[in-house]
Design a protein around this nucleic acid. Structure first.
Lengths: 95, 95
DNA sequence: ATAATATAGTTTATATAATAAACAAGTCTA
DNA sequence: TAGACTTGTTTATTATATAAACTATATTAT
């Protein structure tokens, strides 16, 4: 038995939830993610930025009905990182 | 889809590895855990104390061949917490 | 005997990270 | 045009993780 390191970017509840959403949807905006995760706006803003800086998420800012609208989508790097994380943590979970 | 909160005690790489070991073995000493996890002694000492304070691990200190020997075993509370954590995080992992 | 090294941890100090609270910039509505 | 709402960002505080330093005892070599 061995314990592979867990990607610290993904080993965070909110960032993992965001990536988990995006891996299925492949596009979601700030408000949608906010509702699905139950996060605060401040925390979500920070964590989306972190995911962006890690190259896991691509962020596109536009306007929708006059309001700012932030769209997020997973990058290929993000998909790979998620898959790696899932594989790694499953080793910890099996009893 | 919803994202259940992840027990912050278990949502840590080293603590999760320790509990993962103990859930199978139901008894392991400090040095054994050290080898299996690859952690530093300092970090392991802190995290075992955290698990103990959370009531997830019972710690028994004795001497073995003249040296201090720290044995750890999961409590019932620890088992339940681990099961809950596994259930919760699996929701994040399924694509 | 005693100096050097090894064992088995604990404590402390620091750097990083998570999160709430405060702020900003614009929009809608009465 | 004042007040409330939307959609975020920035800042400040708290908490956490971890490495480094330390403690205490035991063993080995001289």
């Amino acid at each position: 038995m061995s314990f592979a390191p867990l990607d610290p970017i993904l080993h965070n509840q909110l960032r993992l939830a965001v990536v988990s959403l995006l891996v299925s949807l492949e596009e979601a905006d700030f408000t949608f993610i906010l509702e699905k995760t139950g996060a605060t706006r401040g925390n979500l803003s920070v964590q989306i930025t972190n995911l962006q800086e890690a190259g896991y998420v691509k962020v596109t800012k536009t306007f929708k009905d006059n309001y700012p609208n932030t769209k997020c989508q997973l990058t290929a790097k993000g998909v790979k990182a998620f898959e790696g994380y899932v594989k790694a943590i499953k080793e910890y979970l099996k009893t």
